[in-house]
């Protein structure tokens, strides 16, 4: 056996993968440009109605927020909205998922029917609930009157506006958490539960010590998913109340929208969105880690 010395070959350059992904990439890069622009605008004094005043003011827009009670109101409302919706949806979603855990024909049918609110466009869902809470003929207005509550103004009163939009959000998005947790519950190994049942372990103990810990990755993924969406809420609040009454529901994106179109203050609007972006960026990094873990796991099971 003779080993002939052969020179090492130059590697063929792999062009194909770039050719395949380039079109998708180009389309997206076109959309990345505005993002950079937004970051730049947020450092400007820039009002569409006063183009002459346009000028670079570094972090002036951000500094102004620090002492702006309206800004802090936006932060407060956004966080409150996010906490309430995700909290309620998580508890309800988990409850319903456990109710439907057993693979029976009825449970499967119910879980499919519960997808319908989730597949309704949130903006249209907001309109539906607006009709249902109409003071003249809304079925919900009628029902609360029957229960003896008069003068309940739903989204038109500052006292109940938050409650109303949270209710719509819960109606639309609880099925999202439910369906993810249901898939999680059904994929859990059976043995620990059978062993616990044989040993006569109390159900509450099974829930807190076995079910919840094993379900945690799914709960975290579903919650982060919802957190990311909820902090950016627009589709329900804007069609329903345009952020009102007053400033009751001025969450980040609604306020940024109004700053842009109503007050034509591009600088302030984009600065507000940059702050929101920073929050979602941090959350999405957390999310992607969780999501990847779960994805690996799903692929392992398949």
């Amino acid at each position: 056996m003779t080993d002939i010395a052969v020179p090492a070959r130059r590697r063929r350059v792999q062009l194909l993968p770039y050719l395949l992904s380039l079109p998708a990439l180009l389309v997206c890069i076109g959309i990345l440009v505005p993002f950079v622009t937004a970051a730049y605008y947020s450092l400007l004094r820039f009002r569409l109605n006063m183009p002459a005043m346009k000028g670079f003011i570094w972090f002036g827009n951000y500094q102004a927020f620090l002492t702006d009670s309206e800004f802090w109101n936006t932060v407060r409302v956004s966080l409150l909205y996010t906490a309430l919706t995700v909290g309620v949806e998580l508890v309800l979603g988990l409850g319903i998922a456990m109710l439907l855990q057993k693979q029976t024909r009825l449970n499967n049918l119910v879980s499919i029917l519960l997808l319908l609110p989730l597949m309704t466009a949130p903006a249209l869902a907001a309109l539906m609930w607006k009709l249902m809470t109409n003071p003249n003929f809304g079925v919900l207005s009628y029902l609360v009157q029957l229960m003896g509550v008069h003068d309940f103004k739903w989204a038109s009163s500052p006292n109940s506006a938050l409650f109303t939009v949270v209710l719509v959000d819960v109606w639309v998005y609880t099925p999202f958490i439910m369906i993810l947790l249901l898939a999680g519950l059904r994929s859990l190994p059976k043995q620990p539960f059978e062993a616990a049942a044989l040993d006569g372990v109390p159900r509450r103990f099974v829930f807190f010590r076995i079910t919840l810990p094993m379900l945690t990755p799914y709960i975290i993924t579903a919650s982060l998913f919802r957190l990311l969406d909820s902090i950016q809420q627009f589709d329900i609040i804007y069609p329903m109340t345009q952020g009102g009454p007053g400033n009751t529901l001025l969450v980040f994106q609604v306020r940024a929208y109004l700053e842009f179109y109503q007050y034509t203050n591009v600088g302030r609007s984009t600065a507000l969105l940059m702050i929101l972006w920073a929050i979602t960026y941090a959350l999405s990094n957390l999310f992607i880690k969780q999501w990847l873990k779960l994805r690996e796991r799903a692929r392992g099971l398949a």
Binding site: P34, F35, A38, Q232, Q253, S269, W277, T280, I288
Partner: peptide
């Protein structure tokens, strides 16, 4: 990067766009 588009605030891109 493509995935992260799913999570960025849409108005951030839309308003300058």
């Amino acid at each position: 990067t493509l995935l992260s588009f799913r999570f960025a605030p849409p108005l951030l891109v839309l308003l300058p766009l």
